[in-house]
């Protein structure tokens, strides 16, 4: 991402206020990418848990399941496994929601900054993702 402003043609004075806006934009942009990665990996994990729930539907109720807790597999009943999965899933859903909210708010802030910065600097500034 290039943030250099080319004063040469557009010849607009950059004020401290503008600079802070540029900084915020760059900060939000980086934050957004981080959230994106985080969101994807959490979503993936949730999908795994969904698959697992489906698989366990088919399991015999009296079966014991080797469930990974930490680094070791521990033999637990199907019911216990289902409880653990549900609990983990709930946490993930909450986290996903939170990340989604943050991403939305960042997006909003970024569009506001974009309006201001493009309005002032025009083509002299580039705020698009490469």
């Amino acid at each position: 991402m290039r943030m250099l402003n080319q004063d040469e043609e557009a010849d607009v004075e950059v004020t401290w206020e503008d600079q802070q806006k540029i900084n915020s934009f760059s900060k939000l942009n980086a934050k957004y990418s981080d959230f994106e990665l985080n969101y994807e990996s959490k979503k993936q994990e949730k999908e795994y848990l969904d698959d697992l729930t489906e698989e366990l539907e088919l399991a015999d109720e009296d079966d014991r399941i080797k469930y990974k807790i930490g680094e070791a597999f521990i033999s637990i009943s199907v019911e216990q496994a289902q409880q653990r999965i549900e609990k983990d899933k709930e946490i993930l859903i909450q986290e996903l929601e939170q990340i989604q909210n943050e991403m939305n708010s960042i997006n909003e802030q970024m569009s506001q900054l974009k309006v201001h910065l493009y309005g002032k600097f025009g083509k002299a500034i580039n705020l698009e993702k490469e």
Partner: peptide, 24 residues
Amino acid sequence: LEFLREQVTTMEVNIARVYNWDVK
């Protein structure tokens, strides 16, 4: 890290402006 990024951005804009001013 956020703070550092801000400082780098500020400095890069400083450089661009001083440089352009000099060219002009």
